[in-house]
Write a protein that binds this DNA or RNA. Structure first.
Length: 541
DNA sequence: GTAGGGTTAG
């Protein structure tokens, strides 16, 4: 006869908790239910604790889940699975793996707790997140040991893990041997190749695959964007629509950075309208990506407008605006926005500070820049990265504090890269400081010996101070350099076509007009702002 | 109950 508490059997009592545990409850409600469970002496119930751990999984409260788990003396496979799943979903990957190990260890002959098809996918996902292929190989072996070898979800998790851990050969081998090569398997391999910068391999697979889902298309778009092949990314996006697949949130967020980099304003505007029509603007990430696109295309007003209209602004929204304003020389506004961000109680991150510091550097606000740099460490506990030191060197250099800038380079915890020495060198040119320029050049010679731009800068400094012998010495070196520096270029879209501009290019049909305008701008340097102010901002014309 | 695509950066 079943044990009875009052009028109900244990099974009936357990079942009475199910409806409320399966409804969407928060952690506060869960704790009340937990109290009831304890009151009825059911805290050893694997069935109920599993359901409660699931609630913690959704609520992101893994501490409470662990507490529930620890109280159970003999957890079964369902409870282990729930704990491993919750740990993985809440980014506690190490915990997920140690739970799995404990599960295997605790398994006894008379009372075995064997992993099942719901266990391994999460364990493997945790291995992937920890970039621990060695561990995952063991799990791969367990797949055979526990008779789970042709379970496609476990197989796909392994495939994903191998590609993410850069074990592409293993991944290919596995893919070839798979019984069921579904669209997810193809996508795993494609996104793995794309993530490793192996876009040619990804393309071959993509062209070969029998059925393409929106995930396949998006993996290609983001892969191309990742390696800087922006035109290809737009191309794939267009083709996707041609075969009748409607863009969704993720594919749009993936393609917009390519529009931004190419200055493809017309497509960007079309996507904006599409999002408006499909109620996607309410998604924070979509608005963020659109703001970035408008900023990169020079449409500050459009970007600001979208930002104003947002329902919720996250750290990316603020950082994108601050960085965008900084790039357009609107330092005051960038700083103002940073203060608004503080008032809105959004925590800035390292990227926010790159925007803020570069705004200060370009505006010559060196006092403020130094203050924000200190505040970043002190108030926000953000460890400065090399880019932050770069901003600082730029800031001090542009303000003429070349000794201080050099001091920063000497004292910073990492080695300065060529960008930092280059920035210092160009500040030396501005202030005709030969002594520090020579130091910067010594490092640049090692870091990028073939870059002629640095030699040109140094020779200009010699020329500025009348050391003509040194000028001709450097000219000789420059002529002797075989490889040329890749010229920088900028892109804008005119009438639906992307135009590329390279310094000194006079092959365009409208080159004459461009050079004429540039000359005009140079002639009226002090009035440049007036000229720019009368130019249209938001049109591609 | 389990798997695949995404955003800010001198």
């Amino acid at each position: 006869m079943a044990t009875r508490i009052g009028a109900l059997s244990i099974k009936e009592l357990e079942d009475s908790f199910v409806p409320v545990l399966q409804s969407r409850i928060n952690m506060i409600e869960l704790k009340k239910i937990h109290a009831q469970v304890v009151k009825y002496s059911l805290s050893q119930s694997n069935f109920l604790v599993t359901k409660m751990v699931d609630v913690c999984n959704n609520g992101g409260d893994l501490e409470y889940a662990s507490l529930l788990f620890k109280q159970v003396n003999e957890p079964n496979v369902f409870l282990y699975n729930a704990m491993i799943r919750a740990s993985t979903n809440n980014h506690m990957y190490g915990l997920a793996i140690s739970l799995y190990k404990r599960m295997l260890r605790d398994s006894q002959a008379e009372n075995p707790i064997l992993p099942d098809k719901f266990t391994l996918p999460f364990v493997i996902k945790s291995c992937a997140a920890l970039a621990c292929p060695f561990l995952a190989k063991q799990v791969h072996a367990h797949m055979y040991k526990f008779g789970l070898m042709s379970h496609s979800i476990t197989e796909n998790a392994l495939l994903d893990m191998y590609t993410k851990c850069d074990y592409l050969n293993e991944a290919h081998k596995m893919f070839e041997e798979m019984n069921l090569r579904d669209v997810i398997a193809w996508n795993n391999l494609i996104s793995g190749c794309a993530g490793m910068g192996q876009m040619k391999k990804a393309r071959t697979l993509f062209d070969k695959m029998p059925y393409k889902s929106i995930v396949s298309w998006t993996a290609m778009i983001s892969g191309y964007t990742h390696i800087g092949s922006y035109a290809e990314a737009l191309d794939v996006f267009r083709q996707m629509q041609m075969v009748g697949i409607e863009p969704d949130e993720i594919s749009i967020v993936s393609v917009l950075p390519a529009c931004a980099q190419l200055g493809a304003l017309e497509l960007g505007k079309w996507i904006h309208m599409y999002c408006d029509k499909n109620r996607l603007l309410r998604k924070t990430c979509i608005s963020n990506a659109l703001i970035e696109m408008y900023m990169k295309c020079g449409c500050i007003n459009q970007a600001s407008q979208l930002f104003e209209q947002m329902l919720e602004r996250d750290v990316i929204s603020w950082s994108t605006m601050i960085g965008g304003l900084a790039n357009h020389g609107k330092a005051q506004k960038a700083i103002q926005l940073f203060h608004e961000m503080q008032r809105a109680k959004v925590q800035p991150n390292d990227i926010t500070f790159i925007g803020l510091l570069s705004a200060c550097a370009h505006a010559g606000f060196w006092n403020e820049g130094l203050m924000y740099f200190d505040s970043m460490k002190k108030d926000y506990h953000i460890q400065p990265k090399i880019q932050h030191y770069g901003c600082l060197v730029d800031l001090l250099g542009r303000s003429g504090c070349l000794d201080q800038a050099l001091n920063i380079i000497k004292k910073m915890p990492m080695n300065a890269d060529s960008k930092i020495w280059g920035s210092l060198l160009s500040s030396c040119r501005t202030y005709s400081n030969l002594e520090i320029a020579v130091i910067a050049m010594e490092h640049l010679q090692e870091l990028e010996p073939e870059d002629t731009g640095n030699y040109v800068l140094l020779s200009n400094i010699y020329a500025d101070i009348g050391k003509w012998k040194d000028v001709s010495r450097l000219r000789k070196i420059i002529r002797g350099k075989s490889t040329k520096k890749t010229p920088g270029c900028s892109l804008i879209e005119v009438n639906n076509e992307v135009q590329e501009f390279v310094a000194g290019d006079d092959t365009k049909p409208f080159s004459e007009d461009i050079f004429w305008l540039l000359e005009l701008l140079a002639l009226h340097q002090d009035r440049t702002r007036d000229v720019l102010d009368i130019m249209p901002e938001d049109t591609g014309e």
